[in-house]
């Protein structure tokens, strides 16, 4: 065989290998989490793990491993973040694609996208020195490091994803829908609310899912800004500790191969399954909206 043929085959195989690296990595992560996480249940009953008993794995006499409060905390902060990101993101995207002049758009869009480039530790920093004191003052709290603080910060961090995917979806709505609406005497607001946004529902849903995935997995910001109390929160003003924060705080100091060590893997596994489900859902929505956009 000649050399050209050899190199062609070589690169084919090399690229094939490259394509599999990420798949194998994902599978490896999943197996690692599953293998270690499952060992939790050798010493801890699943009923105790998935319970609202306090997360106190380092207790001297009777350690308890209830993930319930952290799961609720994670969902609380994420839901709060979504309440901020969804309306703000859709509004920004709609303004950018439907109303802003091209010049303003060229300034605003990169600015929103630049927000994604701010390191999460910096956002957490802002949360501690800026947002938390403001919250404490506004709601007369002893301390502003709570779920609401985390939700506000995560809401802002998820914004670039929300805006840019939603804007793409609005952009993909065929212009003739808008023309038809204007020709019936609808104004821009009516056209946006009754025609354009409904026509890109699935795209907006995909954007929401991606933003949700971003908020669920965020660690550093919530670790810094939410107060890290392991008790079950009773409201948005309570300090909380999310699953990500717990793993990040404790993983560095836990003795290997103890129930505590394994239980952190189980926590990570729960989080992984949630974000995986959200991402699969998002992919499906995105695929549906791409198909429709054609």
């Amino acid at each position: 065989m000649n050399r050209r043929f050899f190199w062609d085959r070589f690169f084919e195989k090399a690229l094939y290998g490259a394509a599999w690296v990420s798949v194998m990595t994902l599978a490896g992560i999943f197996l690692l989490l599953l293998y270690n996480g499952a060992q939790t249940f050798i010493s801890i009953a699943p009923g105790d793990f998935f319970s609202f008993s306090r997360w106190n794995p380092a207790a001297y006499d009777q350690p308890t491993f209830g993930i319930g409060a952290m799961l609720v905390s994670t969902l609380l902060v994420t839901a709060g973040a979504m309440c901020i990101t969804i309306p703000l993101g859709i509004g920004t995207a709609a303004f950018l694609s439907e109303m802003a002049s091209p010049r303003l758009r060229n300034v605003l869009k990169p600015a929103v996208e630049m927000l994604a480039a701010v390191p999460s530790v910096v956002i957490g920093f802002l949360g501690i020195v800026l947002v938390a004191p403001a919250l404490a003052a506004a709601f007369d709290l002893p301390n502003g490091l709570n779920a609401l603080n985390g939700a506000i910060l995560l809401g802002i961090m998820a914004l670039p994803t929300m805006v840019s995917v939603t804007e793409d979806a609005i952009h993909a709505v065929p212009g003739h829908y808008k023309e038809a609406s204007y020709a019936l005497g609808a104004n821009r607001w009516e056209t946006l609310v009754h025609v354009t946004l409904p026509a890109c529902k699935s795209g907006i849903l995909a954007a929401t899912m991606l933003a949700l995935g971003r908020a669920l997995g965020e660690t550093m910001t919530v670790l810094m800004a939410t107060g890290n109390a392991t008790s079950l929160p009773h409201g948005i003003f309570d300090p909380v500790r999310t699953i990500t924060a717990t793993v990040a705080i404790e993983m560095g100091e836990v003795p290997f191969d103890t129930p505590h060590f394994f239980s952190l893997f189980a926590c990570a596994l729960v989080l992984f399954l949630i974000t995986l489900a959200v991402n699969i859902l998002a992919e499906r929505m995105a695929a549906r909206f791409r198909k429709k956009g054609q």
Binding site: S181, G185, A186, P198
Partner: peptide, 18 residues
């Protein structure tokens, strides 16, 4: 907006809303 309510339009490509 008022004008377009008085003067309707039908387009080249059928464009019912989804």
């Amino acid at each position: 907006v008022h004008l377009r309510r008085r003067v309707g339009m039908v387009f080249q490509k059928p464009n019912p809303f989804p």
